[in-house]
Amino acid sequence: MKTRTWIIIFSLACVLCVCVWLYFSAFLSPSETVGIYQDGVLVKQIDLSSVTQPEEITLSGEYGDNVILVSHGHIKMQSADCPDKLCVKHGELKSSASPIVCLPNKIVIKFEDNAPSADAMTGR
């Protein structure tokens, strides 16, 4: 194949990826409920709209502690002991499409889907 063909293919692939990314970001509207996972296990779920006082949550893993800061409507990784600190640089959790990830300590913070409708209610 000619070089020009490859350039066209790669450009198209780029455009496609950007479209997919925009689609993800636009249509996965963030809920207010976030889940904090460690090792794939839900550690804590927080409704950001109900948080009144800023609160720090500390999780420990193999590579030291991660401190998560929760305040009204916001959640972010405050500090981390891991070497690269990418989770701290991520800043606040903004979209379902980009969860906050700390690979060394296997922590993921992401938006949760809202609760579905129920078949029955207990305790009415």
Partner: peptide, 13 residues
């Protein structure tokens, strides 16, 4: 109940 419970509100295990 981790895998059974879901809520829009905060909860702790």
């Amino acid at each position: 109940l981790i895998n059974n419970f879901s809520s829009e509100r905060s909860f702790e295990i």
